[in-house]
Simulated scan of single mutants.
Amino acid sequence: MPDATLSTVHNAAQLLKEFTRDAELGVSELARRLGLGKSKVHRLLTTLRSDGLVEQDPRSGRYRLGLVLLELGDAARVRTELHAAAAPVLVRLREQTGEAVEIAVPDGDDIVFVERLEAAHTLRIGPPLEAGRRWPLYCTAAGKVLLAHRPEQAREEYLTGTTLTPLTRQTVVNPDRLRDEITATAARGWAEAVNELEAGISALAAPIRGATAAVVAAVGVRAPTIRYRGASRRRLAMAVVQAGEAISRRLGWAHRNHGA
């Protein structure tokens, strides 16, 4: 059974690679190129289509790469371009806010901080979050941003299937309350986590989009909670949203009222 499963994955990968040679292909042509039976190719295409990896032209019946693959390709490209696109914006954001600034990318049900600049303030926020360290989505501002922009079904699967372990007394561990926060995040364009990952530390984050408008990362600030209230919170939110949009534009995103 494992060998058969691996063979199926290999065949699916080889099938997708054929679309680098031709934009549209039919079942017969794919079967000939891959050396597989038409029925097997049709089953592969049906599965890939159900996951959005390929789509079928309703008139010709031929197949082409789906939007999901375009988004995955955009995400892969962004990972290699993110540092160059974000570097000057992060410097400006730290100058604007005086706080620690960072960028996180999704990694399954976690986030990984891939860029970080320390705060300019004398009063700083303890040890830095190490690059490459994984943190849960539910208790971080960046994680809430990424959850807010997941497809609805995937978001609900996370909310109903994840054990929300409290890291502090303020960590949101009620799925309904977390759902409300994620809804609010999607509506206003930014998320916050006050004393949730670490007592005494607050964070605020906004989305970064790639060229297809898919959210591929989040940019944020972290500050001592004693500095995070009132006018400071509103000022940080505006600065972080603007930074997210600036990085997105540098990654090829053209703003078309996507609500970020």
Rank of each mutant, 00 (worst) to 15 (best):
T8H: 01
L16D: 01
E18A: 08
T20Q: 13
R21E: 10
D22C: 13
E29V: 10
L30C: 09
A31N: 06
R32Y: 02
K38E: 15
S39K: 09
G52H: 05
V54A: 07
R59N: 15
L69S: 05
L69V: 11
L70I: 00
A75R: 14
T80P: 00
L82D: 02
R94E: 04
Q96L: 14
A100Y: 04
A100G: 13
E102D: 06
I103K: 07
I103D: 09
D107Q: 13
D109M: 03
V114P: 04
L117M: 10
A120I: 06
L123C: 01
L129E: 13
L129A: 12
G132T: 08
R134V: 01
P136I: 04
L137F: 05
Y138S: 03
K144T: 00
L147T: 04
P151T: 15
P151E: 15
A154D: 15
A154S: 15
Y158W: 05
L159T: 00
T165Q: 09
T165A: 09
T165E: 09
P166E: 06
T168D: 08
R169E: 11
Q170K: 12
T171Q: 02
N174E: 02
R179T: 01
V194I: 12
A199E: 14
A203M: 11
T212L: 11
A217K: 04
A217F: 04
A217M: 05
A218M: 06
P224C: 03
R234T: 10
G244Y: 03
E245R: 13
L251I: 00
W253T: 05
A254E: 13
R256N: 12
N257S: 15
N257M: 15
A260T: 04
